[in-house]
Simulated scan of single mutants.
Amino acid sequence: MDQMALFVIFLLAAFSNTLASSIFDSARLGMRHVDFGGNFTKDELVARSAFRSSRLSLQYSSAEYMIELSVGTPEPQPISGIADTGSDIIWTQCGQPTSLYDPQKSQTYSSLPCNSNVCLQAPNRDPKQCCSYSITYGSGNAAGYFISDTFLLGDTNPVSVPQMVFGCTTSSMATGEAPTGIIGLSRSEYSLIRQLGIDKFSYCLHPDVNTIQPMFLGSAAILDGPLVQSTPLVFPDANLYLVNLNGISLGTEQLPIPQSLFQFNPSDGSGGVIIDSGTPITRLVPQAFEIVSQAVQNIVNLPIADGSTYNLKLCFSLPSGSKVPSMPDMTFHFDGADLKLSMDKYMYLTGDGLFCLFILEPARGFTQSIIGTFQTQNMHVLYDLNNNMLSFAPAECDKL
């Protein structure tokens, strides 16, 4: 078991601090794409997303969207962190050149008791530093100490929430771009969702990386109408958001993918299909990926090309002046719901004439298939923890 898994167990079993008040009702947050304002070309954005999707960790540098909020009083300090349904805790950088938060500037900052269970049992703690931690991710690490402070949530009419527990990271490294923080959105006891005491949240992702993306917390998360589809969130005792994927179709053809490839093993936490805000591009376990790839090759009558420039595995060479091949919809069949992807949601045409499958295999060391954020763009996605349901519907995200 890796350090992150042990750390989650410590949190769930040992933390004794009082959570934020359950009187919190709702808020609308703004999220920024990590490439916001970067002036990247479309091809560069694709390559960067594919690279982030290939990282070794679900929790560290693979994510696309940053939540913006403020911490502390009397002058709230703006911070941002990766919006990640695959992460269990909240942390932000402190005492580093890129830090946005200084606890000493806040009148509501509070350290945690050194004799609390979480402080005594945190992995790789420094006995000389109260409540220290060191978390190892697949693509980096973060070390610091746990504290609490008041959070200010909402891009309009912000809501003040006291005694939010989070990590003050004083040292972090990553292979690639290191985040300034993480906003864990999992089912874990110390994620943002659980600390707020809410039972639902939603987000809607627009393809334009320079658009502020909306996230809705609590009663503000509303999704209704005739186009809404819902599928159960299975294994509610797991921190991740797992769904049953029964198969994949390309057009009218049900692909011969054994359903066992998508089954979750609760005994060791392997397998299964995850809905994840922290993964840009959908990833299918190798055998399922190969079946999907072969089905695409059977339709696209073009020479295979090297897509490594874009960090994509299956690409075709489209002759200059040629039209893009006609491709049917690809459909992911969940319990009670179908996620239908038009060609532009699973194929990409590069500026230099490569026609590529925009689906990947999992990062090395991971056994789950993951539904990524690119495939759910222009969709309003609702997580209902009370009823253990995931719902989605087409939406104009920039108008919500």
Rank of each mutant, 00 (worst) to 15 (best):
S70P: 00
N388P: 05
H333G: 07
L112W: 08
K313H: 13
L185V: 04
T175H: 08
L6F: 11
L69M: 15
L233T: 02
R32T: 05
C94F: 06
Q104A: 13
C356Y: 08
I281Y: 12
Q121M: 12
S80A: 07
P103R: 06
D344A: 11
A220E: 12
I135G: 05
F146S: 08
K42L: 14
P97E: 12
K105C: 05
A122P: 00
I79R: 01
S21I: 02
Y348A: 08
L360P: 10
Q107L: 12
H33S: 11
L242G: 05
D335I: 08
V234S: 03
V8H: 01
G218I: 04
I299S: 06
N239D: 15
V159K: 15
M31V: 00
G271K: 09
D2W: 02
E361T: 15
L312P: 10
M343P: 05
G181N: 04
D88Y: 04
K42A: 12
N265F: 03
K313T: 14
T367W: 03
A50R: 01
S172I: 09
N298R: 15
F332H: 08
C94R: 07
V165N: 08
N265M: 02
S249V: 10
V296M: 14
D102Y: 10
M330D: 09
F264P: 02
L312F: 06
V159A: 12
L349M: 14
P127S: 11
A395H: 14
A238I: 00
P325R: 06
Q213H: 09
V285I: 15
G372V: 11
N387C: 04
S342N: 14
Q287L: 11
S160F: 09
L302T: 08
F334D: 09
L357N: 08
S116H: 06
L152Y: 14
G351W: 00
E64H: 00
